[in-house]
Computed example of a mutant assay.
Amino acid sequence: MPHLNLTRALTAGVLTLVASQALAHGDVAPQAVDTTGLPAIEGDWLTENPYRAEKVGEETWQRAIEIGASGYNQNCARCHGLEVVSGGLAPDLRFLEAEEYGDEWYVERFREGYTQNGITKMPAFGELLGQEAAWAIRTYIEARPDEGALDDFAEELKAMRDQMEGYIADASGADTEALKTRLTEISAQIETASGAPVADSVAYRAANLIDGSAEAFKSASEVLTIGLSAAH
């Protein structure tokens, strides 16, 4: 059904905002975001995310996710939840489709904020943070894995994590290419909640970290440990 995810997210969000007596978004003072490394956006506000991989390439897309994660954690996580998993205070933005109509809803709220019955539920971020930060945060949000997307691979990823931990002391016997290939295969099967083509999953992150060095295996194993813990 067209726009099902968007409708579900927005309906749930509106009902929550109406019913909630908890702290509002308005209590959050916008924090500036360092967007160094992203292509500049000039002129009027865009209505479609310019930092998707098919438009700017995977390297810039990854940089947008990195910056977006920082910006989200500083400005959005308090209400929308860590890793964009809402606790019910605000809409679960993972379900906002990675399409132009989802982008339009997002950027309007980002720029203008949201007020209900004279109470600021969400401050206006647009003027302070600007377009680069806005679209980096959007890129991070839409790349979140779907609910339960790691479940089918959790045990295998734990085994791979344990294997990589064994290579921290001595990586000489590691089959780096086999590990990287399998992590890449797993990451390709992990879907996003937004419909974006690639999920910024722990499998994807780990695959891009390992290079055969002990330090890389340490970093990748830590990513898997943290990600698998957060997923359960």
Rank of each mutant, 00 (worst) to 15 (best):
P2I: 12
N5V: 01
L6P: 00
L10R: 10
L10I: 08
Q21Y: 06
A22R: 13
L23F: 03
G26T: 12
V28W: 14
A29W: 03
D34G: 01
A40F: 02
I41M: 02
G43R: 11
N49G: 00
P50E: 05
Y51A: 01
R52C: 01
A53K: 11
G57T: 06
E58W: 15
I67P: 06
A69R: 15
Q74N: 14
N75L: 05
V84K: 10
D92A: 06
L93V: 04
R94P: 02
R94Q: 10
F95M: 00
E97I: 03
E97G: 11
E97L: 01
E97K: 04
Y101R: 11
F110I: 04
T115H: 11
Q116I: 11
T120K: 15
P123C: 08
F125K: 06
G126S: 12
E127T: 15
E127W: 09
E127R: 10
W135K: 12
W135M: 09
A136K: 14
A143I: 07
P145Q: 07
F153H: 01
F153N: 02
M160R: 12
Y167N: 09
S172Q: 01
A178I: 05
L179H: 11
T181L: 09
T181F: 10
L183K: 04
T184W: 05
T192F: 07
S194N: 13
A196W: 04
A196Y: 15
V198C: 09
A199F: 03
A199M: 10
Y204A: 15
G212A: 09
E215P: 07
F217S: 01
S221Y: 13
E222Q: 11
V223Q: 05
I226W: 09
A230N: 15
